[in-house]
Simulated assay, not measured.
Amino acid sequence: MEQLQDSTILSPGHKDVTAGPCLQTAGCRNVAPVLNRVGDKWSMMIVMTLSDGSKRFSELKRAIDGISQRMLTLSLRGLERDGMVSRTVTPTIPPRVDYELTELGRSLREPVKALGDWAIKHIDCIRSAQRRFDEREDAA
Rank of each mutant, 00 (worst) to 15 (best):
G78R: 11
S68C: 02
G83V: 09
G13Y: 08
P12H: 06
Q3A: 06
D16A: 11
P33F: 06
V34K: 11
R131K: 13
M48I: 11
L79V: 07
E137V: 15
K113H: 02
Q3C: 05
M45N: 14
I64D: 02
V31W: 01
R109C: 14
K113P: 00
I67E: 03
S7F: 11
A129Q: 07
E100V: 01
I46F: 02
K113L: 13
C28L: 14
A114S: 12
T8S: 15
T90L: 08
D52M: 08
L72R: 02
L76A: 05
G20L: 12
E80H: 11
A139L: 12
Q3W: 03
G116W: 04
C28W: 06
G53K: 01
W42K: 01
D16W: 04
I93L: 13
L104D: 10
A63D: 10
R136V: 04
T73G: 02
G53P: 08
P111Y: 02
V97G: 00
S75I: 01
E135C: 12
C22P: 01
K41N: 04
T73K: 12
D82Q: 08
K15T: 15
H122F: 10
R70D: 09
M84N: 14
M48S: 09
W118T: 09
M45W: 00
V89T: 11
A129F: 00
V47R: 01
L79E: 07
S54I: 00
R87S: 08
V34W: 08
R106Q: 14
D124V: 08
R109S: 06
L101V: 08
I123M: 12
R127M: 11
N36L: 12
Q24W: 06
D16S: 14
W42C: 11
V112P: 03
E80G: 01
T102M: 14
I9D: 02
F57R: 09
K113F: 03
V47A: 04
V17F: 12
G53F: 05
